[in-house]
């Protein structure tokens, strides 16, 4: 077991290393292949009045003239050991984990990210609770009442749900519920949980439901399929034959087996969402990780882009790590070799 955990941990770290290298290449190497010079990179960090000499000086100062592996190494070092930046007036500390120092905003990236994590976390966790409960419940009921009106109606809605882009449902629901009826919060509204939990929930209600609807739909479909499959298995027949009450058969035996794949997918979905619910955040103007990523890309703020991609990847990797480990604990069939 311990070796398995260690192996998976090493694997996760390796994965992060590769993601960081690829991200770094995309932004620091690929543009050079298109003809960008060190000065072009440096120019982004300078004011509009920058002269060619200033750009050359800045390029040197920021290390854009160094070989790419050196630049990458410096970035990695910053993540683990922190870094220092010369702002001209003073040497600013960027303590570890220093994912970079935004020269456009003139501040370290990490605190900004930390600032935004609660928004994305609130969005993702709230929505995932709704979709997990809703989706699984509907899926189980549909499976048990297979072919009934409920089943057909639920599955039709679910199919419609997976076919709707979130930026469409989001806008429509805002127009109808917030703008039209005035019963939900407008776009961009967010109150930190610790400040006022009721307001926090009220403000996030519409994004939660919209996002949850999308996922609940696919979870309902998955759960239904899983249930139908397991309920047809021999061991269920055995359980029934033993005279167990039907509710026990369903919850202890059927649901448990059907839920295993759901848990895997849930882990990955949650990880991906925590790394930035880009479309939901931009539709509802929520200032989370996803919105940060898009802003960073649109303004070409390279340190920000590096930081946010790494955080996003970290969430996915950690989520899949946890899922794997849980699996190993819960499901004895998993080989720990």
């Amino acid at each position: 077991m311990v070796t398995y955990i260690i192996r998976r941990l090493i694997g996760a770290l390796l994965m992060l290393a590769i993601v960081s290298m690829v991200t770094f290449s995309i932004f620091f190497v690929v543009p050079r292949m298109a003809g960008a010079t060190s000065e072009d990179f440096a120019n982004r960090y300078l004011g509009k009045a920058a002269t060619a000499e200033m750009a050359a000086v800045a390029a040197e100062k920021l290390g854009f003239n160094d070989p790419v592996p050196v630049q990458y190494g410096r970035w990695i070092k910053g993540v683990f050991a922190g870094a220092e930046y010369d702002t001209g007036a003073s040497i600013e500390q960027c303590p570890a984990p220093c994912f970079g120092y935004s020269f456009v905003k003139r501040q370290p990236v990490w605190p900004e990210l930390v600032d935004r994590i609660p928004v994305t976390l609130s969005l993702a966790v709230g929505a995932s609770v709704i979709w997990l409960i809703g989706g699984v419940a509907v899926g189980v009921l549909s499976a048990l009442k297979r072919g009934s009106f409920f089943d057909r109606a639920a599955m039709s809605v679910a199919l419609a749900g997976v076919s709707l882009p979130i930026f469409f449902t989001g806008i429509v629901s805002l127009v109808v519920f917030s703008y039209g009826m005035g019963i939900t919060a407008p776009g961009g509204a967010y109150t930190p949980f610790e400040e006022n939990p009721a307001e926090w929930a009220y403000n996030l209600l519409l994004p939660w439901i919209t996002l949850a609807f999308l996922y609940a739909a696919s979870y309902a479909r998955l759960t239904r399929a899983g249930m139908l499959e397991t309920m047809g298995e021999d061991y269920i027949r055995t359980a029934r034959a033993k005279g167990l009450p039907e509710s026990t058969v369903i919850s202890r035996h059927g649901l448990r087996a059907a839920l295993t794949p759901i848990v895997t997918i849930f882990g990955l979905d949650l990880g991906l969402l925590l790394g930035g619910a880009v479309l939901t955040e931009s539709t509802f103007s929520l200032k989370g990780i996803g919105d940060y990523a898009v802003q960073a890309i649109m303004t070409n703020d390279l340190p920000k882009i590096m930081g946010v991609t790494m955080v996003a990847a970290l969430f996915v990797v950690v989520a899949s790590l946890i899922v794997d480990l849980l699996y190993a604990v819960v499901d004895p069939r998993v080989r720990l070799g």
Binding site: A36, L272, V278, A293, I297, A312, A313
Partner: peptide, 29 residues
């Protein structure tokens, strides 16, 4: 399989946005 895992770990949409932007500079090439 590892390669596929890595791909699945990427924040897809963010990467796609970035890539389209970066690759868009290659008109000449």
């Amino acid at each position: 399989s590892r390669l596929m895992d890595i791909f699945l770990a990427f924040p897809l949409l963010v990467f796609a946005i970035a890539l389209v932007g970066v690759l868009g500079q290659f008109e000449q090439q």
